[in-house]
Simulated assay, not measured.
Amino acid sequence: MAMFIFQLVDSRNNADMRSIRTGITPGSTQTFNIVFADLDSINTTWIKSGGQLIINVPKDWTDVQIVNNFGFTNPPSVTTFGDGSTQIIGTLSSNLGTATNQADTIQFSAKAPDITYDQMYVMYVLAQGQTTNNFSIGPLSEIVLQVDAP
């Protein structure tokens, strides 16, 4: 399984994967493609529908909006917490990893903090659910976001 920022929606190509985004301008709106993908070549195991992709957007990133939703029940939930962080939860609408569905994507936008000095943020991406042979999934990805002050 993979959960990273991808250049393209539903991509499974290693060249499209990113675990860091640098050069972000303070106050700019960024669009992210978080892809939940089955990277193995076996079509006899998959993640059951109902599994969840959980994206924890760091505090101080604002105006979090779902742009597009590919393969998740519509719409994914967006919750902003008292500390200023936001959580997006998408629930798989069908099995993931079958011959006809290898990857699903939540595309969202968020406004970077308007800072006066360079700062790093970490976006955590998690998943929960079960495979066809009843194994629990729980992958985690840490995505570094570097906001560069002028």
Rank of each mutant, 00 (worst) to 15 (best):
A103H: 03
L39W: 03
S136Y: 14
D114R: 05
A112Q: 03
D114L: 13
Q146C: 00
Q119L: 04
T25K: 13
P113W: 03
N69F: 07
T29W: 04
S109W: 04
G23V: 02
T132D: 09
G71Y: 09
N134E: 04
D118M: 00
K111P: 10
L53H: 05
G27Y: 12
T31W: 03
Q107I: 09
I106C: 02
I137M: 06
I66E: 02
N33I: 05
P58V: 02
L8K: 15
G129C: 01
Y121R: 05
F36L: 08
F70K: 12
V35A: 11
I55T: 05
S77K: 11
G97E: 07
D38H: 11
L126V: 07
R18L: 13
R12I: 15
I55G: 00
L145F: 11
P139I: 12
Q87G: 00
D40T: 15
D16N: 15
S85N: 09
G71I: 08
N56Y: 12
Q146Y: 00
V125S: 01
G84F: 01
Q119K: 12
T98D: 08
S19L: 00
T22W: 00
A15T: 13
V67M: 06
T45H: 07
L140H: 13
E142W: 07
I20T: 15
A15M: 09
D16Y: 14
T116L: 08
N95Y: 03
L53T: 06
F135N: 08
T62Y: 06
Q87K: 12
I47C: 05
T80D: 01
F32C: 04
K48M: 11
V144Q: 14
F36S: 05
W61C: 05
P113M: 04
S41K: 15
V57A: 01
F135R: 07
N134Y: 12
F81K: 04
F70C: 07
D63A: 12
R12T: 15
I55Y: 06
F70A: 13
I47M: 03
S49K: 15
I66R: 06
A112I: 08
T98Q: 09
L126G: 08
L126W: 14
D60S: 14
S109F: 04
P58T: 09
Q107P: 05
P76M: 02
L145G: 05
G27D: 10
Q7N: 14
N43V: 15
N101Y: 00
W46V: 02
T62P: 07
G27N: 10
N13F: 05
D118C: 00
S93P: 00
K59C: 01
V35H: 05
F32S: 07
A112K: 04
M17T: 02
V147K: 03
I106Y: 03
F108W: 01
P76Y: 01
I66K: 02
N33W: 06
T131Y: 02
F4Q: 10
T22L: 08
